[in-house]
Design a protein around this nucleic acid. Structure first.
Lengths: 224, 224
DNA sequence: TTGTCTATACTTAGACA
DNA sequence: TTGTCTAAGTATAGACA
């Protein structure tokens, strides 16, 4: 039975759209805002529900950065970049048969070729590395691509770590709060100083024993 | 009018859940899989619809890494870590009044304090930096946290860049394909070698002129 | 660990403020 | 650029394979 009352609808409601580049600038911006918030919320929910650690980084076409991370974007990036995952830490000399490698050998020929080339490059790097006599120093990158320096003592490292800790706390507190409710506008943030790429967590090379409580208080409770 | 036919429903349908830690291991794992896929799909859609560049990194509690990125996770991380965003590149000496800074001055006292401490740390680092006589060398980190070395010539850099290019292509091709359809299982991936944190894109310190076509062919078309 | 199948809960396009 | 309002398009909880 169909109601023919034909009462005027206030809106047409949501309309299906194709997933393709939005041409209208305004709707593109609006959609970007809404969906970005949606993704952050989903990420936060995944984090809470499953205890997962998540980082989401989004660049708008205008070049603005938006990000979300739990326990913090930097923490996730540190883990990711240093490959601290137990399941992922594999012996690089084991070759494709290692159970820890991605089982994509059959993906396609192109992939196989790339892998081969990758291994070759690795060998070359290893050679050069050895040629460099393995000279080791403590070092870091500060302030951006153009401002590299190095030192051999541990003093500077101390400052850098302290610096990072502070920044982490600030960034984490800022982003974590109320993301779940969509209340906080996860706005553009200042870029992470390159110093954060410093690999200063040698104790984390083979486990995750310290996942949760990096910042003492622990703002796992998304509340507030 | 209510239909009292009372025909047996096949399922109860989706049920509302609280956003809190799932205790049941199995449902936690299932939820993790489904929602993770959902987020990747959303990220891919955002990327296509709005031309945004996105990276999503997820660590399961088991320590597995799952990620999605467009144009690639590494590219996004490079941009993020080096702070190449036009809108985000600000004069660090400008202080909180700089229009490019996040307008969160009023966020709360804690934040203000943290910022203050941050600035102090920065000064200290700057001091030490100067004390180090700004000695500059080309350097990198290869293989992980424990294997640092440096060199002064540009030859090694060449290899490292080549290495990264190859890896980028492989990773990008692997993750981008069919994420939109949820067809490809965005499985756990090998960790990014620490070498990727090398800041080797000095030409990207002040603009985004080369966003899209990093890999020649350009796999913007998610199709296939 | 992933795919399928409902029935629902949740997200969001479009219009407007 | 964000919030509101609807109606409709989607994602997904739970059960099973």
């Amino acid at each position: 039975m169909v109601l023919l009352k034909n009462l005027p609808k206030k809106t047409q409601g949501r309309k299906r759209i194709e997933i393709k580049k939005l041409e209208n600038l305004n709707s593109k911006q609006v959609t970007f805002s809404k969906r970005r918030a949606g993704i952050f919320k989903k990420a936060a929910e995944l984090s809470v529900l499953c205890g997962a650690d998540v980082a989401v980084i989004v660049f708008s076409t205008a070049g603005k950065v938006f990000c979300y991370g739990h326990p913090s974007v930097d923490t996730i990036l540190d883990w990711y970049c240093s490959g601290v995952t137990p399941a992922a830490v594999s012996d690089d000399t084991a070759g494709d048969k290692s159970p820890n490698r991605v089982p994509v050998a059959e993906f396609n020929k192109e992939y196989m070729e790339a892998i081969r080339e990758l291994e070759e490059q690795k060998k070359r790097v290893a050679e050069v590395k050895e040629a460099a006599k393995m000279k080791k120093v403590v070092m870091g990158v500060v302030g951006g691509c153009g401002e590299r320096f190095w030192w051999e003592d541990g003093e500077v490292e101390h400052y850098l770590i302290a610096l990072e800790d502070v920044r982490k706390q600030v960034a984490a507190r800022l982003h974590e709060m109320k993301i779940l409710n969509g209340t906080l506008n996860p706005g553009a943030l200042p870029p992470i100083p390159a110093v954060h790429r410093l690999c200063h967590l040698p104790m984390m090379t083979n486990g995750f024993s310290g996942h949760g409580g990096q910042f003492g208080g622990g703002y796992h409770g998304f509340g507030i």
